[in-house]
Structures are given as structure tokens and as C-alpha cells.
Amino acid sequence: MKVIFDIGHPAHVHLFKHLARLLMEHGHEVLFTARDKEFELQLLEAEGFRYINFGKHYRSLPGKLWGLLRYDLKMLLVGLRFKPDLFISHGTPYAAHAAFLLGAKNLAIEDTGNIEQVILYRPFTDAILTPAVLPKDLGPKQIRYNSYHEIAYLHPEFFTPDPGIRQWLGVGDAEEYAVLRFISWNATHDVGHRGMSAEDKVRLVKQLSKRMRVFITSERGVAEELKPYCLRMPPDKFHHVLHYASLVVSEGTTTAVEAGILGTPCVYVSTFVDPNCQEMEQFGLVFNTTESSKVFELVDKVLAEDRQVYRNRSQTFLATKDNATRFYFDFINSRYAQNGQKHTQPSWQPVS
């Protein structure tokens, strides 16, 4: 079987990388396609995957409309040469449209349910896999499963933390540090939402830096006095940095969930209420607030607990979830097996 993975965000490389390797190990041929948006291409290079770059990502509305036509055509041309049996993406319309025109199947594995994207890909899609925690009803093609996207690449079967990251960061073996993640608020699902105020960001860094090292990763510029704390790192090192942190404060949902899965306590600050973060709060891993000023109280609460408590909570949480990558792999083998052959006893089970 030939499979095209279409990448629309750096997180999608992480989401699909272990699935792609499992497919390759079982004799399937894999090709990635991507737009040059953030650091998708760097991640694909670091992972050693074969990929095709469709060019720069468009950010304006007219650019996005032009991009829909341009990338549709590029995907179709790639498909004509590669002749895929299956397209897999986080619900990109380009993969769905090309699959329809080429007579291939399209599988969407997504966890946002942004309706403006769903209406573009759903008519041309065979199945939509979503975490059970996603409250949105995406129609009869939706199949729910008991896991998160982030578990697909941070499950202990696939992720081993590198203790050498401390040396790379320049922190001692017992030295504590915090990671602060600020986002750009440019994504479609971020419109109308907010996180920490500029004043509270400065105040938080000043307070934390009295207790530990502070590293900032931001999608956009920060105040001049915060620039010395900004961390520039190869994107493939980020999860190792998260794992050994004593604390994460994040405006972004993905980083918050990643931290929780790794057993690193996180304060998630955003007016965007995320179901994953809400569920993880029940396990004492992610602490949610919509108010910038409440962050300080939650940080004190988190740091008052012993660090190992959060590692134990993470293990408890993971025991309640499926290994997402294994679920995807078994689903694909069962549904899209060559020559109509099906697994007689597939291990994947949807959530009713």
C-alpha cells in the first residue's frame, strides 16, 4: 500500500511519525507533503522522512483562498506520480480533494473539529478519527477512540527522555527550571481568545527567576526585558525539555497536554476551554484558568507538591488511555488492507 501523509502543522509530524514507521516496517511505502509554515520541514528532516515541500504557507484570507487552489493542484500532481492508495492528514482539504479525484481513500485523524475545515474535507473523506473527549459531533463518518493525539508520540513505547538535554540547556542535574509557552493567537480556533497579559508575563518571569531558571518559547515577539529568557532550540528537542522541567505555563493546548502526559505539571491559561486540559485536571496534571492573574496562585500550588507526585499521576492517567499510534495502525490495517483482506480479529475498538 502507498500512503501520503499531509502535514499542516509541526505537531502533525509528531502525530504521524511513529505510525509512518510502523507502516514502513510492514512493507508499505510512505511519502510526506507539507507547507513551509513554521518548522515542519525541519522536523521531517530530523526524522529522516521523504517529503515534498509545497512552498510557503499563506496567512491572509485572500492568500488562504489562493492556497486552497494552489495546494490542491500540487497535491493532485504529486498523487498522479506517487499513485497512493490512502491519504492521511489532520483533516486537510488538499488530501481529501486529491483522494477523491484519484479514487483513493482519505482518512482524517483530527482533534479540533473546526467546522470551516470539516466542511471542506468531510464529503471526500472515508473516516474521521477523533478522541472520545472531543465533544463535537462531526457526523456519521466520525469514529471516536479512547486516547489523545499527544499520546501517539509521547507514549512510553515510543518516547524515551534524553537526560543529556540538561547539559544542552546548561542546567545542573538537580537544578530546577520552568518552561513558559506563549502563542501567536493566529490560528482559526484562537480567534477571539486570549491568554496572559503582557504585564503578567513579565511579572511571572521575574517571580519564577528568583526560584529557578526560566525558558520562554514564543510564537511571536516578547517584551524586550524577556528576550534574554527566550530559548532557541531544534524542534525535535522540545519534548525532552518539557519532560525534565519542574513547571510549564502554557497558553497553547498542545504544550499543556504534552507536559501533563510527560508528568510535568502545567498551568494552562487561556479563554479557550480545551476538553483534553479539562480532563487532565481531574488527574491533577493540568491546572486550567481563563484569568491571567490566577496563574500566580496556581504556580504556587503546583510547586508546593513533590515532583514525583506528577510522574505517578501521569502513569495513572496513561493507564486509562489507549496507545493512539497502535490504534491508528490497527485501524488502517483492518479497514484498508490490500486486496480486500481484513484482519479477522482487529485489536482496535471504537468508543461508542
Rank of each mutant, 00 (worst) to 15 (best):
G172F: 10
G67S: 11
E305H: 09
G263I: 15
T264F: 06
V269P: 03
N53D: 09
W348L: 02
T289D: 09
N312D: 06
V171F: 10
R50K: 11
K227R: 13
Y71D: 08
G79K: 02
K37T: 11
P163L: 13
S246H: 06
Y51F: 12
T254F: 05
E116N: 15
Q278N: 08
F82M: 01
V78E: 03
Y153Q: 02
I109C: 05
G67V: 07
L23F: 06
P161D: 04
M1A: 08
F238E: 00
D111G: 03
V3W: 00
G48K: 05
A95F: 06
H28M: 09
F287M: 07
A34W: 10
D173S: 14
H239M: 08
F87A: 04
G284Q: 04
H14I: 15
P275Y: 14
L41W: 00
I119R: 12
Y58H: 09
L102S: 01
P350Y: 10
G48I: 04
D306P: 13
R144Q: 10
F283M: 08
H239W: 10
L41T: 02
D200C: 12
L44S: 03
L154T: 02
V241H: 00
L169F: 15
A187F: 05
E281S: 11
A187D: 10
T130Y: 00
L61R: 12
L61Q: 15
D111V: 10
R213L: 04
S209Y: 14
S250H: 06
R35H: 05
L129P: 03
S292P: 09
N106P: 07
P140Q: 14
L262S: 00
P62E: 06
R311E: 11
F49W: 09
T316A: 14
L129Y: 05
V295T: 05
R35N: 06
R144Y: 15
K2M: 07
H90V: 15
S197E: 15
E116F: 13
S89G: 11
S270D: 06
N312I: 12
L23R: 00
W168F: 07
P275H: 14
I261A: 03
H193Q: 11
H97I: 15
G263N: 07
L102T: 02
F124M: 07
P140D: 13
G113N: 04
I7P: 01
N288L: 08
E291S: 12
I88A: 01
F215Y: 02
E219W: 15
L231C: 04
L69A: 12
Y94Q: 03
V295Y: 13
H9V: 09
Y177C: 01
N106Q: 12
T316D: 10
I332W: 02
L19D: 00
T253N: 12
C230F: 15
K83H: 08
V267M: 11
Q278Y: 08
S347F: 09
P228T: 05
P161N: 07
R311N: 13
T271F: 07
T325Y: 14
T255V: 13
P135M: 02
Q42W: 15
K201D: 14
S147M: 04
